[in-house]
Simulated scan of single mutants.
Amino acid sequence: MTGRRLAETRRAWHGVAELLLAGPQYRDSGTIRLRVVPGGFATTKTPELRVEGADLVVGEQRLALPGNTPAGLAAAADIEAGVPDIYDDHSGVREDEALVVDVAIAAYLGAWFTEGEAALRRAVPSQMPVLWPEHFDVSVTENEVNYGISPGDAWHNEPYAYVGPWTARQGEFWNAPFGAARSIEELPNADAIVAFFDEGRAQL
């Protein structure tokens, strides 16, 4: 599933993660850490908010993302929109920007997050996976190596998993500027993602 609609939906999700979840949570609870939930992602502290597919869920209320603006959604959710002010690498989504979210692609990304988060828990059981809003990826760190999954980005449009040693490695396995990466096409489920992480650990 490639192309413009994937990039648009991912960008909208990223913007919502920053403007409506991580930002309000940081101002209220002092943390930007988000978590994966079935079909999407959620805050870890107050305010309690989550994204499921193409909806922002606030208590019993479901607010459709497509066509709405972060500012409008914030008003409906009774929160203050705004990115966390502790990093500079933002999605670029404006508070007054109409969000473009394809329902099928949102489900596709949600399934990838679910598989990837399950793989991270299995591969590094001592760590709790975190969805970081600045890069919008889910990761853990073990022995100065980052293991994670991304919904895609400017480097690679399709979702991918990665192994990122803090110290650069050389060799055929290490095919990315930050270490090693494999696309969702090569890693269709949690078992395959775990196998990739295990191979990366063995290559260190």
Score class of each variant (00 low, 15 high):
Arg5Ser: 14
Glu8Gln: 15
Arg10Ile: 02
Gly15Tyr: 02
Leu19Met: 05
Leu21Glu: 02
Gly23Asp: 05
Gly23Val: 05
Gln25Ser: 11
Gly30Met: 01
Thr31Asp: 04
Thr31Asn: 12
Leu34Val: 08
Val36Thr: 09
Pro47Lys: 02
Glu48Asn: 09
Leu49Asp: 13
Leu49Gln: 09
Arg50Gly: 12
Val51Ala: 05
Glu60Met: 04
Arg62Phe: 07
Ala64Cys: 00
Pro66Ser: 08
Ala71Met: 07
Ala71Cys: 04
Leu73Lys: 04
Ala75Glu: 15
Ala75Met: 04
Ala77Arg: 06
Ala77Ile: 11
Asp78Gln: 13
Ala81Ile: 07
Val83Met: 00
Asp85Pro: 08
Tyr87Trp: 06
His90Val: 15
His90Glu: 11
Ala98Gln: 06
Val100Glu: 14
Val101Trp: 08
Val103Leu: 03
Ala106Cys: 09
Leu109Thr: 13
Gly110Thr: 08
Gly110Ala: 05
Gly110Leu: 03
Glu115Pro: 02
Glu117Cys: 14
Ala118His: 02
Ala119Phe: 12
Ala119Gln: 10
Arg121Ile: 04
Arg122Met: 06
Ala123Glu: 03
Ala123Ile: 01
Gln127Tyr: 01
Val130Leu: 10
Glu134Lys: 02
Glu134Ser: 11
Asp137Met: 05
Val140Gly: 02
Glu142Lys: 09
Tyr147Arg: 00
Ser150Trp: 09
Pro151Glu: 05
His156Tyr: 14
Glu158Thr: 11
Pro159Thr: 13
Trp166His: 11
Ala168Pro: 13
Arg169Trp: 00
Ala176Thr: 07
Ala176Trp: 02
Phe178Ile: 10
Phe178His: 11
Ala180Asp: 07
Arg182Glu: 11
Pro188Ser: 01
Ala195Gln: 08
Phe197Val: 03
Arg201Gln: 09
Leu204Val: 11
